[in-house]
Amino acid sequence: MGGKNSVGFLILIIGIILIPFMVTNDYYLGVLIFTAFNCLACIGLCLLMGYAGQISIGHGAFIAIGAYTSGILTAKFAWSPWLAMFCGILIVIVIAFCLGIPALRLKGHYLAMATLGFASIVHIVAVAAVDLTGGPSGLVNIPRLDFFGYVLSSDKQYFYFSWSVVALGVYIAFNLINSRVGRGLQAIHGSEDAASSLGINITSYKVQVFILSAVFASVSGSLYAYYMNYIDPGPFDVSHSILLVTMVAVGGLHNIWGALIGAVFLSLLPEFLSFLSDYLQVLGIAYQPDYDTLVYGFILLIIMLFLPEGLFKGFGNITQFVRSIFKKFSKRASDRVK
């Protein structure tokens, strides 16, 4: 990890340590735990979108597979949660491989279509395979995670655990980006012809990153299942997959920090909007939670128009702009002194 990223990483760690002391409300802590799950999926998706230049509109399906594998194996077959999570990872690797090989051989956005179709199938199976998944009424009795018998029972413990996994995910992502493989990926994004003329197997790399991003999603799903102790098909529909893509795009495609910021921003936005709606009520405007989608769309539109590189780069540009104005003023002031 380079200098700036180490600083960012330090800030992330300090934030993780301090936040539970500031947020004592269990509901908000829960929201932040969900945010961690989204962050995890978005890190993987950012590697795929920002570094390999491919879009998956089906990452919700990998989250679902992770969640359901964990849920079914622990609740119905009494497996250890860790083993079940590992099993979910293996299943996702096989599926991502089978999806990725045909879709990524072709130039263009075939992966987006393949994953979109796949996400719909997974959702339908989750709803219809009642014997296995519990269908629309869901799967209950999923245990919490434990470390050698020490169960993560409180939300605070789970907050620390899930955000530690996010920090680990960030660490892994930065290792990858600054490695031989990461450079290969950036090269592919820069020019596929040049990359292959240097001996980089483009299809193989794209498939590998797709698999890695699916593993991130699967782990996120398993953690979700162990936190909720209950899963139903509701949160795993295609719209969630699209929301994940939106998070990464809003934060900034080409930067892991951007993906994190996007994930945090859009995960917390509904809470902020419901908070805001109380005030709007006073003004006589009846804000419905259904309007959230509208606000999402509006934010995406604004960001694509004015901050096409995402919030992360956008903030950077704004601070640079402010700094340049400040410099101008200080220069003028010093000229006057002379």
């Binding site: 892994i172 290792n175 990858l176 490695s179 031989r180 493989v181 990461g182 450079r183 290969g184 950036q186 090269a187 990359a195 240097l198 001996g199 980089i200 590998q208 990153v209 890695l212």
Partner: peptide, 15 residues
């Protein structure tokens, strides 16, 4: 990037 062929770390080790 040009040294790609003269090195061999895979995705797992890179992570």
């Amino acid at each position: 990037v040009g040294r790609h062929l003269r090195s061999n770390a895979g995705i797992f080790y890179s992570c």
